[in-house]
């Protein structure tokens, strides 16, 4: 039971890291980026290739996944995404679905359609017994890493100049521009960081979520749930939403496997209809 909770938390943490960037894209640029999962997939494949082909150690592969996807994100933001900020949501959706399809086919072509596996270092394998609860070492590692990331994100948002500018831009873009804040630069930087985080999430998640070319579509709905349920006003909203989703999904699959993901989808619809701004959004 507690093990389940623990697994759920680890899963939720990964979901948060995966979706954090999306919540910024949506909140800051009002951009519906359905291709967010493609960045996560990229991070996963970077890890797989680095470890399996070039023998890079796992701990070194993680920052690599972050950096490479962040660079790809920056490139795409400057060349393509930037053209869509003012456009209709329909155009944004069509564009980002197009990217997803291309990414899926391209990865399929380059890497094949099979599940990718990585071998975790020995010190991350297995479980230890803590007060009678079997705790997976890798999951503890995930929780630790994601915990650090969450704290760092929160600090950046609340304590740095960049963070306050970012929050000002999310709140009201026009006012922020009026105050002389370079909103475009903030867009680009946060998009890159968000993509990088997705890549890191993909790298961490390879072991527990699985990795194959359909990853972006399979998990798209999960990312969207996290941001729509969590709202885009804060990072605590998506964080709580991700934890809830992770725990609910793990518990659901264990206790009522016959329902599958049914419960989660239904809950999402209910939340969207009742609280279109998210479960944790401040009332307007």
């Amino acid at each position: 039971m507690l093990t389940l909770l623990f697994d759920g938390i680890a899963y939720g943490m990964v979901l948060f890291i995966l979706s954090a960037g999306l919540s910024v894209t949506l909140g800051l640029m009002n951009f519906i980026n359905l291709a967010h999962g493609a960045f996560a997939m990229a991070g996963g494949y970077v890890t797989v290739v680095a470890m399996n082909r070039y023998g890079v150690p796992f701990l070194a592969a993680l920052p690599l996944a972050f950096l490479i996807t962040a660079a790809v994100g920056l490139l795409l933001e400057r060349t393509l995404y930037v053209r869509f900020y003012g456009r209709s949501h329909l155009d944004q959706v069509l564009f980002s679905i197009g990217l997803v399809f291309m990414a899926i086919a391209a990865v399929d072509y380059a890497m094949g359609s099979s599940q990718q596996l990585i071998t975790l270092p020995a010190w991350l394998q297995g479980r230890v017994d803590v007060f009678g609860v079997a705790v997976g070492l890798y999951r503890s590692f995930i929780i630790a890493v994601c915990g650090v990331v969450v704290v760092v994100l929160q600090l950046i948002l609340t304590r740095t100049r960049f963070g306050s500018r970012l929050r000002a831009a999310v709140d009201d873009q026009r006012v922020a521009r009026g105050l002389g804040i370079n909103v475009n630069l903030i867009f680009a930087a946060t998009f890159a960081a968000g993509s990088g985080l997705a890549g890191l999430g993909g790298a961490l998640g390879t072991e527990i979520l699985g990795l194959d070319p359909t990853f972006p579509l399979k998990f798209m709905i999960y990312f969207l749930i996290v941001v729509t349920v969590g709202g885009t006003a804060t990072i605590t909203g998506p964080f709580l939403a991700a934890l809830l989703l992770g725990i609910a999904d793990v518990a659901g699959k264990y206790y009522v496997p016959e329902f599958g993901a049914f419960v989660i989808y239904t809950l999402m619809i209910v939340v969207l209809v009742l609280r279109p701004h998210g479960l944790f959004a401040r009332a307007r």
């Binding site: 049914f262 239904t266 619809i269």
Partner: peptide
């Protein structure tokens, strides 16, 4: 009634969600 109100985003999510629920039902 689920798509009546709300922005494009909620409509997109809800319509995807309904399709997913049906897909899941058919699968189960």
């Amino acid at each position: 009634f689920l798509v009546l109100r709300g922005s494009d985003l909620t409509r997109i999510m809800v319509t995807i969600g309904v399709a997913l629920v049906l897909g899941e039902i058919a699968n189960r």
